[in-house]
Structures are given as structure tokens and as C-alpha cells.
């Protein structure tokens, strides 16, 4: 079965409908599926629920889908650095659900592993626990959090083979591997498509079973949010 698609639009063909839930990988602008986000924008699909640690910045990443008002609701842990996001949220045009970052990651991991819910200490005694079941284990309180799945996951990887085995690079890995497991369909944009056998099976981060479609692109923008450097000779 062919998993390789010629471009991002083709890779998303037939998958986008108004009102679906999409998981989008990345931390800040690092390891985001930038080509797939642009293709979602171009499709004009609306009313999306987007699960992503962050919401991009103005004019980059998921900021593209905020500009076009295609997102109805975000599930995120941190949404700073985005003025448009703040404006949309404060005017009531955008719904927002905050999850602690570890709870978000674990909800996605659980969803992908068929685990409907789990208990965690994170958020006990805070606003996050309101309305959720709290249970005591060995004298400590834990709050119940539910697993998350999505209609579609869009992720970014460094290398892929035709089977969809993926390798990520450095901190661009972040949420991408767990999101790959929790999408009913997962589409991966990759920097390099390699021949079968070129990836060491011991070094694969995401086995191909979690990836249904792959698109390779030669160029990425890979913007840097906070360029920090030190002087030579220090």
C-alpha cells in the first residue's frame, strides 16, 4: 500500500471536514507540521478543534489558522506570544481549554494506547481539578484525566521510509510521536524520505503502523522564536 503523497494538499485529500478534531505536533514553532498547516488553511475547512501544546505565533504555525478564523477551540498548555490569539479569545470568537503540559501529553499517549482515563497528582487542589473525579491512592489525592484521540493528527518528522517508520531530530520530537498514535489518521510531513533499509530498525521512534500518509518536502522555513547566542571566547 502506497503511503507516499506528492504534496501536502494531496496528503490531506478526503480527510478534512468542518468541525473535526485535529492534533498538531510541535513545541512552540519547533517540529511543527508547517506544510500541512498551510494546506489545512488553503482547504478552507472551518470549526476545527485543535489539540496542540501551543497556538503558534502571529503569522506562523497555527497562527495561520487563527488568522482565517478556522479554529473554533484550542486545547493547549501555553498560548503566549500570540496577540491575535488573545484578541480572538477575549472577544469570545475562540474557545480555549488549558491542560497542564504533562497532562496533555499523557492524555494523548493514553488515547493512542486505548486507555480511556488515568489518575495524576498534577492539578490536584487547583482550577484544573474542578468537576473531575478525585481519588485517594495510598494516602495521596489524584485527579482523573481522560485520554484524547483525534480525527486527524498532523506531525513533522526528520526521516521516514515508505512504510512510515519515522525518526525525529533533537527537540523537534516533542509531541509528534504521541500524536502519531492518537490520530485515527496520521499524516506525517518529513524532511527526508529514505529507501527501505536505510533506517536502523533499532533507532526508529515511531513505527509505521501509526502513520497512514507521508509527504516529503524539500524546504521548510523552520522559524526560530527566541534566537539566543553566546559570544565566542566566553
Amino acid at each position: 500500500m502506497n503511503k507516499i503523497y506528492p504534496d501536502a494538499h494531496a496528503a490531506l485529500a478526503g480527510l478534512l471536514r468542518d468541525g473535526i478534531t485535529i492534533m498538531s505536533g510541535g513545541f512552540g514553532l519547533c517540529g511543527i507540521p508547517e506544510l500541512l498547516i498551510a494546506a489545512i488553511r488553503d482547504s478552507g475547512v472551518r470549526g476545527l478543534t485543535v489539540i496542540s501544546n501551543n497556538a503558534g505565533i502571529d503569522a506562523a504555525g497555527l497562527g495561520l489558522l487563527l488568522e482565517t478564523r478556522q479554529i473554533r477551540k484550542m486545547v493547549s498548555s501555553y498560548v503566549g506570544e500570540n496577540k491575535l490569539f488573545a484578541d480572538l479569545y477575549l472577544s469570545g470568537a475562540l474557545e480555549l481549554e488549558f491542560n497542564p503540559q504533562g497532562t496533555l501529553a499523557e492524555r494523548i499517549r493514553a488515547g493512542g494506547a486505548g486507555i480511556p482515563a488515568f489518575f495524576t497528582k498534577t492539578g490536584v487542589g487547583t482550577l484544573i481539578a474542578e468537576g473531575k473525579e478525585v481519588r485517594e491512592f495510598d494516602g495521596e489525592n489524584y485527579v482523573m484525566e481522560k485520554g484524547l484521540v483525534a480525527d486527524l493528527s498532523v506531525i513533522h518528522a526528520w526521516k521516514a521510509d515508505r512504510e512510515g517508520n519515522l525518526v525525529y531530530r533533537k527537540t523537534a520530537r516533542n509531541f509528534n510521536p504521541v500524536m502519531a498514535t492518537a490520530g485515527r489518521i496520521t499524516v506525517a510531513e518529513v524532511e527526508h524520505l529514505v529507501e527501505p533499509g536505510a533506517l536502523d530498525p533499532d533507532h526508529i521512534h515511531t513505527p509505521g503502523i501509526f502513520v497512514q500518509r507521508i509527504v516529503r518536502a524539500a524546504t521548510f522555513e523552520k522559524p526560530i522564536e527566541q534566537r539566543t547566542v553566546r559570544k565566542r571566547g566566553n
Binding site: 533533537k170 510521536p177 504521541v178 553566546r230
Partner: peptide, 29 residues
């Protein structure tokens, strides 16, 4: 160092950083 920034290598403050000989990378979960 200036000119050696890697967009795939940032810290939780989204600042560019570097790795060490003993560094490991892993997913968010």
C-alpha cells in the same frame, strides 16, 4: 555561538541552545 543556532534544538523557553556529549532527547510524554 552565533551562526550555529539550530531551529530543531530549543529549550522550554523556546531559546536556541546546544547539546552536550551526554545529552538525550525524548518525547513530551
Amino acid at each position: 555561538f552565533e551562526g550555529e543556532e539550530d531551529p530543531d534544538l530549543i529549550n522550554a523557553g523556546k531559546q536556541t541552545i546546544t547539546e552536550l556529549p551526554t545529552t538525550s532527547y525524548f518525547d513530551s510524554a
